[in-house]
Every structure is written in C-alpha cells, then in structure tokens.
C-alpha cells in the first residue's frame, strides 16, 4: 500500500530555493496527520550537502540522486530521476513546487506515473486519509476542491502561500542511483535577466503599473519605490501589450497569478482578467484617479488621486521609515 508523504526539493545554482522549505513544512504537516513519514527527493549534481537543510524542516529521509547529468535542470533527466524514487518507494502523496521548474517537472511526472495532480494549490488538507487539494481555477475567479483516486496523489504548491515551520527530523540520506536514459533536450544557454530582478511570482511585495502609467519611462517611479521595499514591479496586460513592460512581468489571467503579502496597483483600472491574477494577495492597495475604477472593490486601502504625485510621496515616507 502506498505510504509516505514525499516532496521534490528545488535547487538552483547549488542552493535550495525557499519553496523547498514550504514543501517540507507542508509535507510534515500532512504526514503528521496521517502518521506517515516525510521523504524528500533531491536531484542535482553535488547536492548531498543540502540534505541537512531539508531535515531541519521535517524530512525523515532525503533521497539524493546525484548525477552530473542532472545539472542544469532538464525535464527529461529530472522526471526520470524522481519517477524512479517514487516507483521504488510508492508514497501516497507527492508534492512539487508550482514554480517555473516545478510546473514543468510535475506535469511530466503525471505522465510518467500515470496519476492525477492538482496544480498550483493554495491549501491542502486530509479527509478520510486522502488528500483534498484546494486550487484557484479560471485564474482565481473560482476555486476547486480536488481529490485524486490514484497514487501518488500529486499536488503542486503555489510558492509564497504555505508557511515555513522548523521541525528537525533525522533527514537520513538515502543515495539513489538512476540510470538516466537518452536525453533529448539540453540547456544550451542561460540568459540571466539584468539587475537581479525579483520575479513577480516570488516577491513578497509587487508594485504594478497599468495604462495610467502613460508610458514606459514613468515606471521609474515604481522601480524606485520597489527597490526600497525589495519589491518586484509588475504590469497589467494593457501596459505589456503597449510594449512598455516585458511579458514576464504581466499579472493576470493571461500572465502570472501572484499572491504576495502586498500588491500595489498603480493606474490599473482593474479589468476582470487582471483582478483574477492578483485577488489572492494578502493586502491590496489601489492608487487611481478614477474613484469608479473596479480595482477599488478589491482594495484594502484605496487612494483616489494622481499616482504621479502619490507614489513619489510614498517613496519619501518609506525612506524616512527605513532611516
């Protein structure tokens, strides 16, 4: 019988990403309810030393697949490695990150393991010994509760939503050798975005601009405030389609869905397709001249005024705060 709550840890450039600890903590919580063990799956090259960090957040065992062919990440190699560990251990639950890499990997794993998965979950619970996964659908216009009849029951977790809780366990390292078959894809180039920009899906604070920004040059005022707050700068579809901002910054149903602690919408009216992408943010601020703008219906704090006056003043205030 399938047993155990497993998760796939995600690393990049030799370090675990924060979502790996969110996965470990969530797996621990579910395993405690089921009276099961937590198994972490760690794939890469020279990654064994990271196992102890996963133990700190609740991993009883860490399955390490260490192979030079696993660095950098490719779908084929990682899916083979993880699938092997899963087939050898038959966990009842397998959690992945709904990050760029995790979404890619988890979807390939559903194919390899012939199972079901709830994507981009925002809540997980156990009912009658089975997983119930809560996830936004229609970019958050409604939510679905998903149950999976096959094992492992897979779920990918939206980054930044699940809490990180320390809970030291043994983290016994189990080395696994996987004979990787022929690999048909290869990373030939990595082009880093300039300026160490934070991705909108990973930032605790997102400051977005829309049509009301009036032009690409005016995003500088958002960037100045963002730099002070450690925030990412996002954009509405209108701003992206106008060519003011790159596609990777677009928040909404045809862009990225974000759940930061704080979302500041500047000059965004709040088209339903934008609201869908940000309404699960913890706090929402709207700054817009038009008091009738739909964005105010979603906002915790609304400022009806000219963003070109308010935002620079906010920057001054934040500078004062931060001394």
């Amino acid at each position: 019988m399938a047993k155990g709550v497993f998760f796939v840890a995600e690393c990049r450039d030799g370090a675990l990403r924060k979502v790996s600890f969110e996965l470990a903590s969530t797996a621990r919580k579910l395993a405690d309810q089921l009276g099961d063990e937590v198994g972490a799956i760690l794939c890469g090259s020279g990654v064994e030393s990271l196992a102890s960090e996963l133990a700190k957040y609740g991993a009883d065992k860490v399955f390490v697949v260490d192979n030079p062919a696993l660095e950098p990440y490719t779908t084929g190699a990682h899916a083979q490695a993880v699938a092997q560990v899963v087939k050898d251990n038959s966990p009842s639950i397998l959690l992945c990150a709904a990050s760029a890499q995790g979404k890619d990997l988890s979807a390939a794993l559903v194919g390899k393991l012939a199972t079901g998965m709830a994507t981009d979950c925002t809540d997980l619970r156990i009912e009658n010994g089975r997983l119930v996964a809560v996830r936004p659908m229609y970019a958050g216009k409604c939510y679905g509760e998903v149950v999976i009849s096959s094992d492992p029951q897979m779920a990918s977790l939206r980054p930044n939503v699940f809490p990180v809780v320390e809970c030291a366990k043994a983290g016994q390292v189990v080395k696994v050798d996987v004979a990787l078959g022929e690999l048909k894809t290869k990373v030939v180039e990595v082009i880093k975005d300039t300026g160490g920009k934070i991705d909108v899906t990973e930032a605790n604070i997102v400051i977005s601009g829309g049509r009301g920004m009036k032009g690409p040059e005016n995003f500088a005022i958002l960037e100045e405030l963002a730099a002070l707050l450690g925030a990412a700068v996002g954009a509405s579809r209108a701003a992206v389609d106008a060519g003011w901002r790159p596609q990777s910054d677009q928040v909404g149903q045809t862009g990225k869905v974000v759940s930061p602690n704080l979302y500041i919408a500047c000059g965004i009216s709040g088209a339903i397709q934008h609201l869908a992408g940000m309404s699960s943010s913890k706090y929402i601020v709207a700054i817009n001249k038009d008091p009738e703008a739909p964005i105010f219906q979603k906002a915790d704090y609304g400022v009806v005024d000219d963003l070109f006056k308010v935002v620079p003043e906010m920057t001054k205030e934040v500078k004062k705060l931060l001394g």
Binding site: V132, P136, G144, V147
Partner: peptide, 21 residues
C-alpha cells in the same frame, strides 16, 4: 476515466471591504 476530480467548486473567498484614504 479520470484520476483527479474537482469534487466541489467554490467562489473565491470574499475580501473584507476596504478603506479609502
């Protein structure tokens, strides 16, 4: 035959009314 099933659809959680500053 499906393995993953949406057993229940729910509207998004309502947001408490905000403040206009």
């Amino acid at each position: 035959a499906s393995k993953a099933k949406v057993v229940k659809f729910v509207p998004p959680p309502a947001r408490p009314p905000g403040k206009i500053i």
